[in-house]
Amino acid sequence: MINEKRVYHMTQMARYEQNKARHDEHIGSYFRSDYISGRLLESFFCATIAYAIILGLYCIYHFEEIMVTVYSEEVMRFVSSAVVFYLVFTAVYLLFTLLIYYRRYKHAVQDLKLYYIALRKLSDEYEEEEQE
């Protein structure tokens, strides 16, 4: 006699195993702080490279004005403005990274937990049937 409810749950578990489990297990293998700090470090480098590209394009676009600035006394003001924009850009980008990966870690761990609970429940049911 087929237990339809069990078949349904097992199907859901198999679908999870096929689609998301590997990705979630990879995330779940880290401590939360390690996972997020690793992603923040990656984002720091990406933000730095992206800002360098944007700054390069800006300098080329305003080349003549920047040349005048370089040969005047306002070069430090330009450099300090560039540094401030870099810090703001990086801070905003890191904040978004933190929010995105915090949420991903939370969902991955929750889904894994539900999966393992379902797996244990299935195992207990089989043991009870064997004892009967």
Binding site: E42, C46, A47, I49, A50, I53, I54, G56, L57, Y93
Partner: peptide
């Protein structure tokens, strides 16, 4: 310039 746009897309969003 096209490469710069592509890199910005990859670094800021695609990753």
């Amino acid at each position: 310039v096209g490469l710069a746009l592509m890199l910005l897309l990859m670094l800021i969003y695609l990753r």
